[in-house]
Design a protein around this nucleic acid. Sequence first.
DNA 1: TCCGGAAATGAAAAGCTTTTCATAACCATC
DNA 2: GATGGTTATGAAAAGCTTTTCATTTCCGGA
Lengths: 336, 336
Amino acid sequence: MNIKEVARRAGVSISTVSRVINGTANVRPEVKQRVEAVIQETGYRPNSLAKELQRNKTNTIGVLLSAPALDLTSLGSTINAISDVLKKSGYSIMFANSRFDPEEELDFFKLFQEKRVDGILYFAVDFTEEHYKLLKNYPIPIVMIGQEDAVLDFPCVVHNNYHAAKHATEYLISQGHRRIGFIGAPLMDRAAGAERRRGYEAAMLLNQLHLEPEAMAEGDFSIESGGKAMESILERCSVPPTALFVATDFMAMGAMHHLLERGLRIPEDVSIVGFDDVNMAHVYNPPLTTIRSDNREVGTRAADLLLEILHKKEPEVKKYVANYELMVRKSVKKIM
Amino acid sequence: MNIKEVARRAGVSISTVSRVINGTANVRPEVKQRVEAVIQETGYRPNSLAKELQRNKTNTIGVLLSAPALDLTSLGSTINAISDVLKKSGYSIMFANSRFDPEEELDFFKLFQEKRVDGILYFAVDFTEEHYKLLKNYPIPIVMIGQEDAVLDFPCVVHNNYHAAKHATEYLISQGHRRIGFIGAPLMDRAAGAERRRGYEAAMLLNQLHLEPEAMAEGDFSIESGGKAMESILERCSVPPTALFVATDFMAMGAMHHLLERGLRIPEDVSIVGFDDVNMAHVYNPPLTTIRSDNREVGTRAADLLLEILHKKEPEVKKYVANYELMVRKSVKKIM
DNA sequence: TCCGGAAATGAAAAGCTTTTCATAACCATC
DNA sequence: GATGGTTATGAAAAGCTTTTCATTTCCGGA
């Protein structure tokens, strides 16, 4: 069933049917009704492919994730927000997750190009030379989420990783902690990883506290890796630090779990502050003190920004930094 | 830049370029090389829309979610698994979340039809009359996830909700509990909601334990709703039940949090068993005893099933019931 | 040298819309 | 009743591929 057949049955021309469907011009009520009746009874649905081919616009946005797994990060709510915004504007989502594999990521960019998506929301992590080569003259507008890049200079929406991490660490210092450990995300992740670490280090150094390499470890976002990192720190330190800043809530919970299993108490024996404010952070036992950086907001902003670019050409602000907030709960103890 | 222009520049016909791109027929090495060179330097990418229009196949699967929010359920890992399987088979994903809104859900089905997706993975929840009308003669293969429907009789992959819930409750009974409360998911969700409830009730009745309406409440998947449900139970019961079966881990954690805040201990004062085995369940404090129903497996099976249908016509098994396992941890105390 | 068949290539149709341009119909005004 | 201007409709091009069918080229064998 195609538009031609509908036209035939309704005894009108193809153009007329098109006009009825799209409401793009006046059609005599009586004719319109006849066409609609035919559409109704045949269950005809226009073929978007043909339409998009001719209009040269797909009303589809590619969402490219470069995440370990959807349930290991707070990305779920960001995606939700994106999905809500785009739905409202009549865009569909083409979804892809490269799982940190740069090769695959490039494949997805090529795919998006072939599928002629109108724009891309890109949760970037790491760039290879190939990335630069391909993206340098990429013909589709891209908005980066969670990371910016000086070379490519795409519009972006980012978390305030550096300052928030610094703030979190300073909070620990303000509570009297001096020996503060750190569990980080992979450094290859320039956003969450490196920036949060820099924030932590800055806070320490600025307060004349020195970094203890034995009290620092790196995880891979997974809960388990948080536990392992904690374990290795405990092994390496003759006396454990009184507090830790952990770069993601999931790893923080892994770390806390490990602590608790060892019979250490939180926050009496060691204090923890996390990052993300994952939806379960506030109901953990003890409720986790952490940095909230509104993921819904990030998703909404990013989608809005892309839409803006799609409609005009130049957005007003090319970079949006999300607000953050330290959620003080019960995983940190004040010591003197 | 289109295939015509590439052909012109390489001094060959359109057909030849097409053949080079798709490797669909022999082309003289020398010609092939020339065409590839042109493609390389022009950065030409074939237009999928045209290809799909002509081939009448989009290599795209619609994934329709009917969930409250991506980060409130264990769906993340299911989607991950789906995404992995489909990627491997060369399919793209068109993603949509109807947020429980039946109207929107139908719109998405229409959209998928217009976009000509090859198949649909449908996380169904509730059906309206309209659903039946539309889906009765829907022209695209659908695999349902998490729920089956006797009328539409789509192939499906489901959790063993009833038996697992029964099992969980029986476990509580085996540990000596007699007064067992229940916090359920919305009943409108026929799968997670009603089935799990039925399992709970069956276990109770089969063991000559009677249901106490004051010890039962309903949440909406959210963590907070679990807390509220717990609160209302506590308010209504002069002496609280010794244990509860909670239909989702997230709500279970909300409930536990509320309990802990009230100064009640888990499991000494009240035992809890959840459902889902969300990735954080095992690091909660105390680690949550819960039902694991492998979400990755469900996603993989569903995607495989759909692919099978897409390639042949009739799948061997039309319904797959996922295994479950009771993960015994520390949120249940044996009482005598 | 010629013939037959295989291999390589090209022309054109088909897939389904939208949209431009032309035509037809209609109405009101002078 | 002719004219001018809307308004409604249709024909056909354009958008970019794939694929069928026809044609050309090539090669080996007689």
